[in-house]
Amino acid sequence: MNKALLIIDYSYDFVATDGKLTAGEAAQHIEKSLYERIKQSYNDGEFIFFMMDAHVEEDYYHPETKLFPEHNILGSKGIELYQSIRDLYNEIKDDELVFFIEKTRYSAFQGTPLQLLLKERNIESIQLTGLVTDICILHTAIDAYNLGYDITIYKDCVASFNQVGHEFALSHFEKTLGATVE
């Protein structure tokens, strides 16, 4: 079965202590596990998709502007991959197994070519990592479920700024979407 690893929104704005919409220590805590997971998937010849939340400054038409402060602005430091994940991406980015896709909605499937790229590569199973467990990971998982993918979420590679939401999402993945939570 062809597998793909998705790294969702592991950006400066979501991870750094001074990020615009940071999950702070919880997001920083998963960096080593996330690095190891990416490295292992790459060494195993799996497809890797870096999916990045991307916004323009003062986009008052985007629904998130009513809910969250501006974050992951195109051209800013905030949208860059965070530290060791950025360094690893720079090492592997030229490989045909590695993709970087900007997204403007919570789900990595909405308004992106992700579904087409997965289908072209006969990928049946996706592994979700990154941020934020109860927002972008959750919405991506729901879309993946509706599209018929086998889903795995790695607990040591997801985090949120809301611990209650994080725990709810982990339970929802397993009990409602039938995902594997490891």
Rank of each mutant, 00 (worst) to 15 (best):
T17G: 03
G19H: 09
K20M: 01
A23C: 12
E25R: 02
A27V: 13
K32V: 15
K32C: 03
E36F: 04
S41L: 01
S41Y: 02
S41R: 00
Y42C: 05
N43S: 09
N43I: 01
G45I: 06
E46W: 07
F50P: 00
A54S: 14
E58Q: 11
Y60H: 12
Y61W: 12
H62R: 05
T65P: 15
P69V: 02
P69Q: 07
N72H: 01
G75P: 14
S76Q: 14
S76T: 10
G78Q: 08
E80H: 01
S84F: 08
S84M: 12
R86S: 08
Y89T: 07
Y89M: 07
D94V: 13
D95F: 03
E96L: 06
L97Y: 15
L97C: 06
F99L: 06
T104I: 10
Y106V: 04
S107W: 04
F109K: 03
Q110F: 13
G111N: 05
L114M: 07
Q115A: 03
Q115N: 10
L116C: 05
L117R: 04
L118A: 09
E120T: 13
I123E: 15
S125T: 15
S125D: 14
I126W: 05
Q127C: 06
G130R: 03
L131M: 14
L131E: 04
V132M: 11
T133H: 03
D134H: 08
D134E: 14
I135E: 08
C136G: 11
H139Q: 12
T140A: 04
A141W: 05
Y145A: 05
Y145M: 06
L147T: 00
L147R: 06
G148V: 10
G148T: 10
I153M: 01
F161T: 00
V164Q: 03
H166A: 11
E167D: 15
A169E: 11
E174H: 13
T176N: 15
